[in-house]
Design a protein around this nucleic acid. Sequence first.
DNA 1: CCGTGACACGAGTGTTTACTCGCATACAAT
DNA 2: ATTGTATGCGAGTAAACACTCGTGTCACGG
Lengths: 198, 198
Amino acid sequence: MALRKLPRQQRSRDMVDRIVAAARDVLVADGYDRLTTNRVADRAGVSPGSLYQYFPDKASIVEEVTARYVDRLTEDVVASLVDHVHEDPEAMARATAEALLSALERDPTLLRVVWQELPVSRHLDDRLGLERRVRDVLRAYLGGRQPPGSRRRDPARSSWLIVLAVESLAVRFVLDDDAPLDREELVEDLVALGLAWW
Amino acid sequence: MALRKLPRQQRSRDMVDRIVAAARDVLVADGYDRLTTNRVADRAGVSPGSLYQYFPDKASIVEEVTARYVDRLTEDVVASLVDHVHEDPEAMARATAEALLSALERDPTLLRVVWQELPVSRHLDDRLGLERRVRDVLRAYLGGRQPPGSRRRDPARSSWLIVLAVESLAVRFVLDDDAPLDREELVEDLVALGLAWW
DNA sequence: CCGTGACACGAGTGTTTACTCGCATACAAT
DNA sequence: ATTGTATGCGAGTAAACACTCGTGTCACGG
């Protein structure tokens, strides 16, 4: 977050949240390149100067929005993963694919802003963090199981491939509506992908 | 391209190329957010005013850079695809994966700028065009062949999945060097993916 | 209830930068 | 050659906008 100073009193903690929420609203309503500090302040109902009591610059406000958003996604997916870690691979894959899609579908507009309007480099760390956390859980899961087929694949390699491919496909499915398959079919194909690479 | 006016004489056609090349250089050397019109003009050895003889605004200059870059990628991949269209699926998949990786590796810095520094929306159309062209060829190929297994899958669906997944993985492999597999392994896995989804 | 630091305000400032416009030069046509 | 047109120049302009700072208000400890 890199706040300029710690909010000590309650009202100032509220203010930080109000600012972040307002920034999110501006992103969704007006898009990233119409986001100005004055507009965020307006929407938050505070003065421009107040932003800079806690945030060192405009970028860090946006950063906070993306961090909170991606963290939420991460929690949802990891939670599902952990919840189904004792089931068989197919059920687990299906549940997690569903969880990911649901999480992405909760706020498609913000997803579009973060994934496509913002320069990727502005939230790449968040994204890498999401991927790493999911990958770690998945790798542990894969490492603890014998695949049914003949040869055993490297779990690190499998999880890298699966996480990236599934993420890319799921995001694109939610953002572009010209995909030649419906949601259910996508889930099936993602499951198949996971099993094939495992 | 959306040029402001057609360059008629030879020297003016040269100038357009010089400007585009300079913009590319600035992107690679300084990054997208340090790209200013004056800097591009400097690097091209022309005056700021001259940019606006042919380009309506700064965005269209960058657009032209990305369009040329992505077009080049497209040509390379489609060419490989077409060249191997009479071979068996595995050989074809391998050749195309190789071609894609080689094309991406030719200018990783520009790839990073275009894919990660630029807002995705600024070159999304280029990207969709690349995907569509590759997908069309692939779909025709898949449609003309019987898969060895039992059930026949929808070629439109397969090609959508394959193109997106392969693109995402290849780009990430080239840009992030923490992938837990080497180039050769990646090619194998991409081939396996293609065969599994076919 | 007073005093002190934390908090909030918002008009203003300084900088950055995309883009223009009046003029100069090169070229083509006749 | 001469004239009209296309091309090129670059100092200058105007607008946008991130961020500051001097002033005022609030809340809490004593």
